[in-house]
Amino acid sequence: MLTFVIRRLLYSVVVLLAASFIIFTFVSVSGDPVAFLRMQPTASEITIQRIEERKHLNDPIPVQYVYWLKDMLTNQFGTTTIGDRPILPDITRVMGHTLQLVIAAELLAILVAVGIGVYSALRQYSVFDYSATTFSFIGLATPVFWLALMLQVLFVYIYQWTGVRIFYVANLSGVDPGTGIHFLLDRAQHLALPVLVLMVASIASYSRYMRASMLEVVNSDYVRTARAKGLPERSVTMRHAFRNALIPLVTIVALNFGALLGGAVVTETVFGLDGMGLYFINALNNGDPYPVMAWLMVTATLVIIFNLVADIAYGYLDPRVRYE
């Protein structure tokens, strides 16, 4: 097991280095962090040259990459090209916000999806099952940006019509979020719509996995044996079938969670949430490779960690799986 983990981590370092070089090259070629200065008739050439020299913008890209690598390893991701602003505090802040969004969305999505999946499997080909299947496909097919905008329009309309604000359509907190319970309620009202948007796709996907897995398990020999032993149906379903049916879902959730921590780019942008996704988009728009690379390294590391967690969890939950 330990050998497996170490080997996976070593592979990951190589993957990270290769990915970082490719992304660094693309961002450096396509973006110019001092472009906005060049467009200003009065911008000081000396200042532009100082920035270019300080950040080695005139050096070949492999040389720039080495400078970035050195900065990342010795200076906590380094600083932005314009203004030398430390990157780590920003990444830490936006990661905190994304965690709030993703944890809330994933927990609620798992709860709802497991319920739907289990009930659909137990009542296969029932009206509920057909309805859940239909809504799952709609959920999977709905573009995130469209759903986000529609929800905004809907709740703005409700506000204009009733004068009651149920949910906010932008930002992470109100002008005066208050403290204690007021703060929590304010945060909930701001996060509700983005959480709902993320939930829809997750529920649609997870419920299908859960249904398929549950169907496979309820028809297996050991469940039949449990019933033959005379165990109550509830005990058969929850203790013998449900727990085993969860195994594939754990893997999917772990993988999805890792990817989502990189930021729900579209959702965060539409709702103006100061998270990882929005941070990435802003950095990309500014053409500054340093924050883009910081985002990439954090996201890639999380994906690798959660992939590893998924593999380990799978082996832990299913004794038939062995690591070589």
């Binding site: 703005v156 204009q160 906010y168 359509v169 932008a170 930002n171 002008v175 942008t269 539409v270 100061d274």
Partner: peptide, 20 residues
Amino acid sequence: VVFRYIPSTPSLFQALNSGE
């Protein structure tokens, strides 16, 4: 005077319509 930062222009209009 409070400055609220909303990066998406369509959302800016929704926030305006909803009084945010």
